[in-house]
Design a protein around this nucleic acid. Structure first.
Length: 533
DNA sequence: AAAAAAC
Protein backbone atom coordinates (compact mmCIF):
# COMPACT_ATOMS: atom_id res chain seq x y z
CA UNK A 1 0.00 0.00 0.00
CA UNK A 2 1.46 3.35 -1.04
CA UNK A 3 0.41 6.98 -0.88
CA UNK A 4 -0.11 7.07 -4.67
CA UNK A 5 -2.56 4.22 -4.37
CA UNK A 6 -4.65 6.33 -2.01
CA UNK A 7 -5.30 8.77 -4.83
CA UNK A 8 -3.12 11.67 -3.75
CA UNK A 9 -1.68 14.38 -5.96
CA UNK A 10 1.88 13.70 -7.17
CA UNK A 11 3.38 16.69 -5.36
CA UNK A 12 1.84 15.48 -2.09
CA UNK A 13 3.20 12.00 -2.58
CA UNK A 14 6.60 13.53 -3.17
CA UNK A 15 6.38 15.78 -0.11
CA UNK A 16 5.35 12.85 2.04
CA UNK A 17 8.28 10.81 0.75
CA UNK A 18 10.62 13.69 1.49
CA UNK A 19 9.25 13.84 5.02
CA UNK A 20 10.41 10.24 5.32
CA UNK A 21 7.09 8.37 5.12
CA UNK A 22 6.77 5.56 2.63
CA UNK A 23 3.72 3.71 3.85
CA UNK A 24 0.44 5.11 5.07
CA UNK A 25 -0.45 4.25 8.66
CA UNK A 26 -3.73 2.37 9.19
CA UNK A 27 -5.62 5.60 9.96
CA UNK A 28 -4.24 7.22 6.85
CA UNK A 29 -5.02 4.22 4.68
CA UNK A 30 -8.67 4.38 5.72
CA UNK A 31 -9.19 8.09 6.16
CA UNK A 32 -7.48 9.45 3.04
CA UNK A 33 -9.56 7.67 0.37
CA UNK A 34 -12.79 8.36 2.25
CA UNK A 35 -11.92 12.03 2.65
CA UNK A 36 -10.91 12.32 -1.01
CA UNK A 37 -14.31 10.88 -1.87
CA UNK A 38 -15.77 13.81 0.05
CA UNK A 39 -17.09 11.91 3.05
CA UNK A 40 -17.34 13.38 6.53
CA UNK A 41 -15.16 11.45 8.96
CA UNK A 42 -15.37 10.45 12.60
CA UNK A 43 -12.02 9.00 13.56
CA UNK A 44 -11.08 7.53 16.88
CA UNK A 45 -7.36 7.13 17.12
CA UNK A 46 -4.77 8.45 19.46
CA UNK A 47 -1.80 10.69 18.89
CA UNK A 48 1.09 9.02 17.18
CA UNK A 49 -1.11 7.25 14.67
CA UNK A 50 -0.35 9.77 11.94
CA UNK A 51 -3.67 11.56 12.07
CA UNK A 52 -2.36 14.98 11.06
CA UNK A 53 -1.46 13.59 7.64
CA UNK A 54 -4.72 11.63 7.63
CA UNK A 55 -6.74 14.84 7.40
CA UNK A 56 -4.20 17.24 5.95
CA UNK A 57 -3.22 15.22 2.87
CA UNK A 58 -6.75 14.72 1.50
CA UNK A 59 -7.57 18.32 2.40
CA UNK A 60 -4.55 19.65 0.48
CA UNK A 61 -5.51 17.36 -2.37
CA UNK A 62 -8.92 18.96 -2.50
CA UNK A 63 -7.54 22.49 -2.25
CA UNK A 64 -4.95 21.81 -4.93
CA UNK A 65 -7.61 20.63 -7.33
CA UNK A 66 -9.91 23.54 -6.63
CA UNK A 67 -9.67 26.88 -8.37
CA UNK A 68 -7.66 28.76 -5.81
CA UNK A 69 -6.83 31.74 -7.99
CA UNK A 70 -10.18 33.21 -7.11
CA UNK A 71 -9.41 33.09 -3.43
CA UNK A 72 -6.45 35.25 -4.12
CA UNK A 73 -8.41 38.00 -5.88
CA UNK A 74 -9.77 39.77 -2.83
CA UNK A 75 -6.29 40.15 -1.43
CA UNK A 76 -4.91 41.13 -4.83
CA UNK A 77 -7.50 43.75 -5.54
CA UNK A 78 -6.94 45.23 -2.11
CA UNK A 79 -3.26 45.34 -2.85
CA UNK A 80 -3.63 47.08 -6.20
CA UNK A 81 -6.07 49.54 -4.69
CA UNK A 82 -3.52 50.33 -2.04
CA UNK A 83 -0.87 50.76 -4.73
CA UNK A 84 -3.13 53.36 -6.35
CA UNK A 85 -3.19 55.20 -3.08
CA UNK A 86 -6.79 54.36 -2.26
CA UNK A 87 -7.72 53.72 1.34
CA UNK A 88 -8.61 50.10 1.71
CA UNK A 89 -10.57 48.56 4.49
CA UNK A 90 -9.11 45.31 5.78
CA UNK A 91 -10.94 42.59 3.95
CA UNK A 92 -11.78 39.65 6.08
CA UNK A 93 -9.74 36.51 5.49
CA UNK A 94 -11.73 33.82 3.71
CA UNK A 95 -10.10 30.51 4.59
CA UNK A 96 -11.00 27.34 2.71
CA UNK A 97 -9.98 25.12 5.58
CA UNK A 98 -10.07 25.42 9.35
CA UNK A 99 -8.35 23.12 11.83
CA UNK A 100 -9.30 23.54 15.49
CA UNK A 101 -6.96 22.15 18.14
CA UNK A 102 -7.08 22.24 21.95
CA UNK A 103 -3.58 23.62 22.48
CA UNK A 104 -1.23 26.08 20.90
CA UNK A 105 1.56 23.51 20.64
CA UNK A 106 -0.60 21.14 18.67
CA UNK A 107 -1.72 23.95 16.37
CA UNK A 108 1.90 24.83 15.66
CA UNK A 109 2.72 21.21 14.93
CA UNK A 110 -0.17 20.94 12.49
CA UNK A 111 0.91 24.14 10.77
CA UNK A 112 4.51 23.04 10.40
CA UNK A 113 3.45 19.60 9.11
CA UNK A 114 1.27 21.41 6.57
CA UNK A 115 4.18 23.56 5.48
CA UNK A 116 6.16 20.38 4.93
CA UNK A 117 3.45 18.91 2.73
CA UNK A 118 3.00 22.09 0.71
CA UNK A 119 6.62 22.77 -0.28
CA UNK A 120 5.63 22.17 -3.91
CA UNK A 121 2.29 23.94 -3.59
CA UNK A 122 3.35 27.42 -2.77
CA UNK A 123 -0.06 28.92 -3.44
CA UNK A 124 -1.50 27.18 -0.45
CA UNK A 125 -0.57 28.76 2.82
CA UNK A 126 -1.30 27.69 6.39
CA UNK A 127 -1.32 30.07 9.31
CA UNK A 128 -1.66 29.57 13.07
CA UNK A 129 -4.15 31.72 14.95
CA UNK A 130 -3.32 31.39 18.63
CA UNK A 131 -3.75 33.14 21.91
CA UNK A 132 -0.65 34.80 23.20
CA UNK A 133 0.39 35.98 19.76
CA UNK A 134 0.64 39.75 19.20
CA UNK A 135 -2.37 41.13 17.30
CA UNK A 136 -0.44 43.15 14.69
CA UNK A 137 1.43 40.02 13.68
CA UNK A 138 -1.77 38.07 13.37
CA UNK A 139 -3.37 40.79 11.30
CA UNK A 140 -0.45 40.50 8.87
CA UNK A 141 -0.98 36.77 8.64
CA UNK A 142 -4.72 37.15 8.07
CA UNK A 143 -4.17 39.89 5.46
CA UNK A 144 -2.42 37.32 3.28
CA UNK A 145 -5.76 35.57 3.10
CA UNK A 146 -4.35 32.12 3.80
CA UNK A 147 -6.23 29.08 2.55
CA UNK A 148 -5.73 27.24 5.81
CA UNK A 149 -6.23 28.44 9.37
CA UNK A 150 -5.02 26.29 12.25
CA UNK A 151 -6.42 27.77 15.45
CA UNK A 152 -7.18 27.40 19.11
CA UNK A 153 -10.83 28.28 19.78
CA UNK A 154 -10.50 31.37 21.98
CA UNK A 155 -8.46 33.59 19.74
CA UNK A 156 -10.31 32.45 16.63
CA UNK A 157 -13.62 33.59 18.10
CA UNK A 158 -11.97 36.84 19.04
CA UNK A 159 -11.11 37.45 15.37
CA UNK A 160 -14.48 36.22 14.13
CA UNK A 161 -16.30 38.65 16.36
CA UNK A 162 -14.26 41.57 15.17
CA UNK A 163 -15.02 40.67 11.58
CA UNK A 164 -11.52 39.60 10.58
CA UNK A 165 -12.56 36.16 9.39
CA UNK A 166 -15.33 35.23 7.00
CA UNK A 167 -16.12 31.52 6.80
CA UNK A 168 -18.49 31.71 3.83
CA UNK A 169 -15.87 30.10 1.56
CA UNK A 170 -14.95 27.37 4.03
CA UNK A 171 -14.86 23.89 2.51
CA UNK A 172 -13.16 21.77 5.16
CA UNK A 173 -13.50 21.80 8.93
CA UNK A 174 -11.28 19.61 11.11
CA UNK A 175 -11.65 19.17 14.87
CA UNK A 176 -8.46 17.65 16.20
CA UNK A 177 -8.47 15.99 19.64
CA UNK A 178 -12.13 16.85 20.01
CA UNK A 179 -12.45 15.00 23.30
CA UNK A 180 -9.76 17.16 24.82
CA UNK A 181 -11.33 20.34 23.56
CA UNK A 182 -14.56 19.36 25.28
CA UNK A 183 -12.66 18.41 28.45
CA UNK A 184 -11.16 21.85 28.43
CA UNK A 185 -14.57 23.48 28.29
CA UNK A 186 -14.54 24.60 24.67
CA UNK A 187 -17.95 23.19 23.80
CA UNK A 188 -19.72 26.56 23.47
CA UNK A 189 -16.85 28.01 21.45
CA UNK A 190 -16.88 25.05 19.10
CA UNK A 191 -20.63 25.29 18.60
CA UNK A 192 -20.27 28.97 17.81
CA UNK A 193 -17.49 28.40 15.30
CA UNK A 194 -19.27 25.51 13.61
CA UNK A 195 -22.43 27.59 13.34
CA UNK A 196 -20.48 30.25 11.44
CA UNK A 197 -19.38 27.81 8.74
CA UNK A 198 -21.41 26.78 5.67
CA UNK A 199 -23.49 23.65 5.95
CA UNK A 200 -21.92 22.45 2.70
CA UNK A 201 -18.55 21.97 4.38
CA UNK A 202 -16.72 18.66 4.73
CA UNK A 203 -16.19 17.85 8.40
CA UNK A 204 -13.55 15.57 9.92
CA UNK A 205 -13.50 14.94 13.65
CA UNK A 206 -10.64 13.19 15.44
CA UNK A 207 -10.94 12.06 19.03
CA UNK A 208 -9.58 9.44 21.40
CA UNK A 209 -13.16 8.35 22.05
CA UNK A 210 -16.34 8.75 20.05
CA UNK A 211 -18.87 8.03 22.76
CA UNK A 212 -20.63 10.25 25.26
CA UNK A 213 -20.50 13.99 24.81
CA UNK A 214 -18.04 13.84 21.90
CA UNK A 215 -20.27 11.40 20.07
CA UNK A 216 -23.31 13.64 20.49
CA UNK A 217 -21.48 16.63 19.13
CA UNK A 218 -19.90 14.56 16.37
CA UNK A 219 -23.28 13.41 15.13
CA UNK A 220 -24.67 16.93 15.23
CA UNK A 221 -21.95 18.49 13.14
CA UNK A 222 -21.35 15.78 10.54
CA UNK A 223 -23.46 14.43 7.69
CA UNK A 224 -23.54 10.71 7.01
CA UNK A 225 -20.02 10.33 8.42
CA UNK A 226 -17.76 7.37 7.85
CA UNK A 227 -16.60 6.13 11.23
CA UNK A 228 -13.04 4.89 11.45
CA UNK A 229 -11.85 3.19 14.59
CA UNK A 230 -8.24 2.28 14.65
CA UNK A 231 -6.69 0.22 17.35
CA UNK A 232 -3.18 0.33 15.98
CA UNK A 233 -0.16 -1.13 17.69
CA UNK A 234 0.81 2.44 18.55
CA UNK A 235 -2.56 2.93 20.27
CA UNK A 236 -2.01 -0.08 22.44
CA UNK A 237 1.60 0.89 22.96
CA UNK A 238 2.81 -2.53 21.91
CA UNK A 239 5.96 -1.04 20.47
CA UNK A 240 6.84 0.46 23.84
CA UNK A 241 8.73 -1.62 26.37
CA UNK A 242 7.67 -0.68 29.89
CA UNK A 243 9.66 -1.17 33.07
CA UNK A 244 9.40 -0.29 36.74
CA UNK A 245 12.52 0.31 38.83
CA UNK A 246 12.17 0.47 42.59
CA UNK A 247 14.29 3.04 44.39
CA UNK A 248 15.04 3.61 48.07
CA UNK A 249 15.30 7.37 48.14
CA UNK A 250 15.94 10.48 46.10
CA UNK A 251 19.67 9.99 45.82
CA UNK A 252 19.18 6.42 44.63
CA UNK A 253 16.64 7.70 42.14
CA UNK A 254 18.97 10.40 40.86
CA UNK A 255 21.90 8.04 40.47
CA UNK A 256 19.73 5.54 38.64
CA UNK A 257 18.36 8.27 36.39
CA UNK A 258 21.85 9.33 35.40
CA UNK A 259 22.75 5.73 34.70
CA UNK A 260 19.66 5.08 32.59
CA UNK A 261 20.27 8.22 30.56
CA UNK A 262 23.66 6.85 29.60
CA UNK A 263 21.97 3.92 27.87
CA UNK A 264 23.76 3.38 24.60
CA UNK A 265 20.47 3.01 22.77
CA UNK A 266 19.30 6.41 23.94
CA UNK A 267 18.80 9.01 21.29
CA UNK A 268 16.53 11.48 23.08
CA UNK A 269 14.61 11.18 26.34
CA UNK A 270 11.75 12.87 28.15
CA UNK A 271 11.92 12.81 31.95
CA UNK A 272 8.58 13.56 33.62
CA UNK A 273 8.42 15.20 37.03
CA UNK A 274 5.48 15.97 39.28
CA UNK A 275 6.33 19.63 39.77
CA UNK A 276 7.61 22.52 37.70
CA UNK A 277 10.25 23.17 40.29
CA UNK A 278 11.63 19.64 40.02
CA UNK A 279 11.65 19.94 36.24
CA UNK A 280 13.90 23.00 36.54
CA UNK A 281 16.13 21.52 39.19
CA UNK A 282 16.67 18.19 37.50
CA UNK A 283 17.32 19.84 34.15
CA UNK A 284 19.96 21.99 35.82
CA UNK A 285 21.50 19.04 37.55
CA UNK A 286 21.60 16.95 34.36
CA UNK A 287 23.16 19.84 32.48
CA UNK A 288 25.91 20.05 35.03
CA UNK A 289 26.37 16.31 34.60
CA UNK A 290 26.82 16.95 30.88
CA UNK A 291 23.50 15.70 29.43
CA UNK A 292 22.30 18.58 27.19
CA UNK A 293 19.06 18.79 29.15
CA UNK A 294 16.29 21.40 29.09
CA UNK A 295 13.21 21.98 31.23
CA UNK A 296 9.68 22.38 29.88
CA UNK A 297 6.74 23.45 32.03
CA UNK A 298 3.77 25.76 32.19
CA UNK A 299 5.52 28.58 34.00
CA UNK A 300 7.74 29.18 31.00
CA UNK A 301 6.73 31.76 28.42
CA UNK A 302 5.26 30.48 25.21
CA UNK A 303 8.33 31.60 23.29
CA UNK A 304 10.69 29.75 25.59
CA UNK A 305 8.52 26.64 25.35
CA UNK A 306 8.54 26.76 21.56
CA UNK A 307 12.28 27.30 21.47
CA UNK A 308 12.86 24.35 23.78
CA UNK A 309 10.68 22.09 21.66
CA UNK A 310 12.46 23.27 18.53
CA UNK A 311 15.87 22.45 19.95
CA UNK A 312 14.49 19.09 20.99
CA UNK A 313 13.39 18.48 17.40
CA UNK A 314 16.74 19.62 16.07
CA UNK A 315 18.45 17.23 18.45
CA UNK A 316 20.27 19.94 20.39
CA UNK A 317 18.43 18.95 23.54
CA UNK A 318 18.81 15.29 24.35
CA UNK A 319 16.95 15.14 27.64
CA UNK A 320 13.74 17.09 28.08
CA UNK A 321 12.71 17.37 31.72
CA UNK A 322 9.03 18.20 31.76
CA UNK A 323 5.82 18.33 33.71
CA UNK A 324 2.64 17.02 32.16
CA UNK A 325 2.64 19.94 29.68
CA UNK A 326 4.62 17.53 27.58
CA UNK A 327 2.49 14.49 28.38
CA UNK A 328 0.27 14.91 25.35
CA UNK A 329 0.73 15.96 21.81
CA UNK A 330 4.49 16.25 21.59
CA UNK A 331 5.60 14.37 18.51
CA UNK A 332 9.35 13.92 18.21
CA UNK A 333 10.10 10.58 16.54
CA UNK A 334 13.66 10.44 17.84
CA UNK A 335 12.54 10.12 21.47
CA UNK A 336 13.71 6.64 22.47
CA UNK A 337 13.21 6.85 26.23
CA UNK A 338 10.53 8.15 28.57
CA UNK A 339 11.40 8.21 32.26
CA UNK A 340 8.79 8.81 34.91
CA UNK A 341 10.92 10.45 37.58
CA UNK A 342 7.64 10.77 39.45
CA UNK A 343 4.58 8.74 38.65
CA UNK A 344 1.72 10.77 37.21
CA UNK A 345 -1.25 11.59 39.38
CA UNK A 346 -3.70 9.81 37.11
CA UNK A 347 -3.19 6.50 35.31
CA UNK A 348 -4.54 8.10 32.17
CA UNK A 349 -1.61 10.51 32.16
CA UNK A 350 0.78 7.57 32.32
CA UNK A 351 -0.56 6.33 29.02
CA UNK A 352 -0.14 9.76 27.43
CA UNK A 353 3.36 10.14 28.82
CA UNK A 354 4.74 6.86 27.55
CA UNK A 355 3.18 7.62 24.18
CA UNK A 356 5.87 10.29 23.68
CA UNK A 357 8.20 7.49 22.65
CA UNK A 358 7.59 4.78 20.08
CA UNK A 359 6.44 7.36 17.55
CA UNK A 360 6.14 6.86 13.82
CA UNK A 361 6.29 3.09 14.05
CA UNK A 362 9.50 2.98 16.07
CA UNK A 363 10.08 1.23 19.34
CA UNK A 364 10.55 2.92 22.66
CA UNK A 365 11.37 2.29 26.28
CA UNK A 366 9.32 3.71 29.15
CA UNK A 367 10.81 3.48 32.63
CA UNK A 368 9.12 4.44 35.89
CA UNK A 369 11.25 5.14 38.95
CA UNK A 370 9.12 4.17 41.87
CA UNK A 371 9.56 4.45 45.59
CA UNK A 372 8.49 1.39 47.52
CA UNK A 373 5.64 3.33 49.04
CA UNK A 374 4.21 4.01 45.59
CA UNK A 375 3.59 0.39 44.73
CA UNK A 376 -0.15 1.02 44.90
CA UNK A 377 0.13 3.66 42.18
CA UNK A 378 1.83 1.17 39.91
CA UNK A 379 -1.09 -1.17 40.55
CA UNK A 380 -3.56 1.53 39.59
CA UNK A 381 -1.70 2.07 36.34
CA UNK A 382 -1.60 -1.65 35.65
CA UNK A 383 -5.29 -1.94 36.32
CA UNK A 384 -5.98 0.98 34.00
CA UNK A 385 -3.82 -0.29 31.15
CA UNK A 386 -4.73 -3.93 31.78
CA UNK A 387 -1.05 -4.78 31.49
CA UNK A 388 1.52 -5.79 34.03
CA UNK A 389 4.65 -3.69 34.02
CA UNK A 390 7.70 -5.87 34.64
CA UNK A 391 9.99 -4.83 37.46
CA UNK A 392 13.59 -4.40 36.50
CA UNK A 393 16.81 -4.08 38.50
CA UNK A 394 20.03 -2.63 37.17
CA UNK A 395 23.20 -4.20 38.45
CA UNK A 396 24.85 -1.88 40.92
CA UNK A 397 21.57 -0.03 41.55
CA UNK A 398 19.71 -2.68 43.50
CA UNK A 399 17.24 -1.22 45.96
CA UNK A 400 18.04 -2.00 49.59
CA UNK A 401 14.57 -3.24 50.27
CA UNK A 402 14.36 -6.31 48.14
CA UNK A 403 12.18 -5.47 45.21
CA UNK A 404 11.08 -8.27 42.96
CA UNK A 405 14.18 -9.17 41.00
CA UNK A 406 13.61 -9.91 37.37
CA UNK A 407 17.05 -10.21 35.94
CA UNK A 408 17.53 -10.33 32.25
CA UNK A 409 14.49 -8.24 31.49
CA UNK A 410 16.62 -5.41 30.38
CA UNK A 411 19.76 -7.05 29.05
CA UNK A 412 20.48 -6.23 25.46
CA UNK A 413 17.52 -3.92 24.89
CA UNK A 414 18.02 -1.60 21.98
CA UNK A 415 15.64 0.81 20.35
CA UNK A 416 14.27 -0.93 17.32
CA UNK A 417 13.93 -4.03 19.39
CA UNK A 418 10.47 -4.42 20.84
CA UNK A 419 10.72 -8.05 21.70
CA UNK A 420 10.01 -7.42 25.36
CA UNK A 421 6.71 -5.81 24.58
CA UNK A 422 3.48 -7.73 24.94
CA UNK A 423 2.20 -9.23 21.72
CA UNK A 424 -1.29 -8.49 20.43
CA UNK A 425 -3.87 -10.08 22.62
CA UNK A 426 -1.25 -11.29 25.05
CA UNK A 427 -1.78 -10.52 28.68
CA UNK A 428 1.44 -11.79 30.07
CA UNK A 429 5.01 -11.10 29.11
CA UNK A 430 7.50 -13.27 27.31
CA UNK A 431 9.69 -13.44 30.39
CA UNK A 432 10.66 -16.24 32.67
CA UNK A 433 7.77 -16.74 35.00
CA UNK A 434 5.24 -15.43 32.55
CA UNK A 435 5.83 -17.07 29.21
CA UNK A 436 5.11 -20.56 30.43
CA UNK A 437 2.10 -19.70 32.51
CA UNK A 438 -1.45 -19.30 31.34
CA UNK A 439 -3.04 -16.10 32.58
CA UNK A 440 -4.27 -16.66 36.08
CA UNK A 441 -7.94 -17.20 36.34
CA UNK A 442 -9.57 -13.95 37.33
CA UNK A 443 -6.11 -12.51 36.83
CA UNK A 444 -5.04 -9.11 37.85
CA UNK A 445 -6.37 -7.21 34.90
CA UNK A 446 -9.97 -8.18 35.31
CA UNK A 447 -10.08 -8.84 39.02
CA UNK A 448 -12.87 -7.17 40.90
CA UNK A 449 -11.77 -4.39 43.23
CA UNK A 450 -10.27 -5.98 46.29
CA UNK A 451 -11.76 -5.48 49.69
CA UNK A 452 -9.15 -3.83 51.84
CA UNK A 453 -8.87 -5.96 54.92
CA UNK A 454 -5.86 -4.11 56.18
CA UNK A 455 -3.51 -7.04 55.70
CA UNK A 456 -0.83 -7.39 53.13
CA UNK A 457 -2.19 -9.06 50.06
CA UNK A 458 -1.22 -12.50 48.87
CA UNK A 459 1.76 -12.48 46.59
CA UNK A 460 1.33 -10.52 43.43
CA UNK A 461 1.59 -12.65 40.34
CA UNK A 462 4.57 -10.51 39.45
CA UNK A 463 6.47 -11.94 42.39
CA UNK A 464 5.13 -15.43 41.96
CA UNK A 465 8.21 -16.91 40.36
CA UNK A 466 10.24 -16.13 43.44
CA UNK A 467 8.61 -18.81 45.45
CA UNK A 468 7.65 -18.30 49.08
CA UNK A 469 9.69 -15.89 51.16
CA UNK A 470 12.33 -17.49 53.30
CA UNK A 471 10.95 -15.94 56.40
CA UNK A 472 7.34 -16.25 55.36
CA UNK A 473 5.04 -15.71 58.27
CA UNK A 474 7.54 -13.71 60.27
CA UNK A 475 6.78 -10.00 60.46
CA UNK A 476 8.89 -8.16 57.96
CA UNK A 477 10.95 -5.48 59.51
CA UNK A 478 10.16 -1.97 58.58
CA UNK A 479 6.84 -2.87 57.01
CA UNK A 480 4.24 -0.86 58.79
CA UNK A 481 1.42 -2.83 57.30
CA UNK A 482 2.82 -5.89 59.04
CA UNK A 483 3.22 -4.19 62.40
CA UNK A 484 -0.41 -4.52 63.29
CA UNK A 485 -3.57 -5.10 61.34
CA UNK A 486 -5.55 -1.99 60.69
CA UNK A 487 -9.12 -1.88 61.79
CA UNK A 488 -11.48 -2.80 59.00
CA UNK A 489 -13.20 0.07 57.26
CA UNK A 490 -16.76 0.58 58.39
CA UNK A 491 -19.29 -1.07 56.13
CA UNK A 492 -20.10 1.12 53.17
CA UNK A 493 -16.98 3.22 53.49
CA UNK A 494 -15.85 4.26 50.05
CA UNK A 495 -12.97 2.20 48.71
CA UNK A 496 -9.75 4.04 48.17
CA UNK A 497 -11.00 6.89 50.30
CA UNK A 498 -7.93 6.60 52.40
CA UNK A 499 -9.78 5.21 55.37
CA UNK A 500 -7.47 3.61 57.84
CA UNK A 501 -9.67 3.21 60.85
CA UNK A 502 -8.42 3.99 64.31
CA UNK A 503 -4.81 2.92 64.70
CA UNK A 504 -4.35 0.56 67.64
CA UNK A 505 -2.48 2.19 70.45
CA UNK A 506 1.25 1.97 69.89
CA UNK A 507 0.87 0.25 66.54
CA UNK A 508 3.27 2.60 64.87
CA UNK A 509 6.56 3.40 66.37
CA UNK A 510 7.82 6.91 66.02
CA UNK A 511 9.79 6.82 62.79
CA UNK A 512 11.75 9.87 63.75
CA UNK A 513 10.35 11.71 60.75
CA UNK A 514 8.02 14.61 61.03
CA UNK A 515 4.41 14.03 60.13
CA UNK A 516 3.40 14.95 56.59
CA UNK A 517 1.33 17.80 57.90
CA UNK A 518 4.38 19.36 59.43
CA UNK A 519 6.76 18.78 56.53
CA UNK A 520 5.78 18.40 52.93
CA UNK A 521 7.40 15.37 51.46
CA UNK A 522 8.20 14.38 47.97
CA UNK A 523 6.63 11.33 46.48
CA UNK A 524 9.69 9.47 47.70
CA UNK A 525 8.80 10.15 51.24
CA UNK A 526 12.03 12.07 51.40
CA UNK A 527 11.70 14.97 53.73
CA UNK A 528 12.31 18.41 52.42
CA UNK A 529 12.59 21.61 54.31
CA UNK A 530 10.13 24.44 53.86
CA UNK A 531 12.90 26.59 52.53
CA UNK A 532 12.85 24.56 49.36
CA UNK A 533 9.22 25.41 48.69
C1' DA B 1 2.36 19.88 44.44
C1' DA B 2 -0.07 20.01 36.52
C1' DA B 3 -2.12 21.89 32.49
C1' DA B 4 -4.86 24.57 29.45
C1' DA B 5 -7.81 28.00 26.99
C1' DA B 6 -9.11 35.40 24.86
C1' DC B 7 -7.82 40.26 26.10
Amino acid sequence: MSFEALGLHASLVKAVAEAGYTQPTPVQAQAIPAAIAGRDLLVSSQTGSGKTAAFMLPALNKLANAEIVQARTTAQSAQSARAKGERVRFTAAQPKMLVLTPTRELALQVTSATEQYTTDMRRIRAVSILGGMPYPKQMQLLAKNPEILVATPGRLIDHMESGKIDFSELEILVLDEADRMLDMGFIDDIEKIVAATPASRQTMLFSATLDGVVGNMARRITKDPQTIQIMSAANRHENITQRVHFVDDLSHKNRLLDHLLRDEGLDQAVVFTATKRDADMIADRLNIAGFAAAALHGDMHQGARNRTLDSMRRGQVRVLVATDVAARGIDVPTITHVVNYDLPKFPEDYVHRIGRTGRAGRNGLAISLVNHAEGMNVKRIERFTKQLIPVDVVEGFEPKRSAPARTGARAGWKPGDGRNAAKPGQRSFAKPGYADRAPREGGFADRAPRQDNGFARPADSRYADRGPRENAGAPREGFRRDAAPRAAAPAGAPRDAGHRGPRPEGARRDSGFAKPSAHPRSADGTRRSFGEY
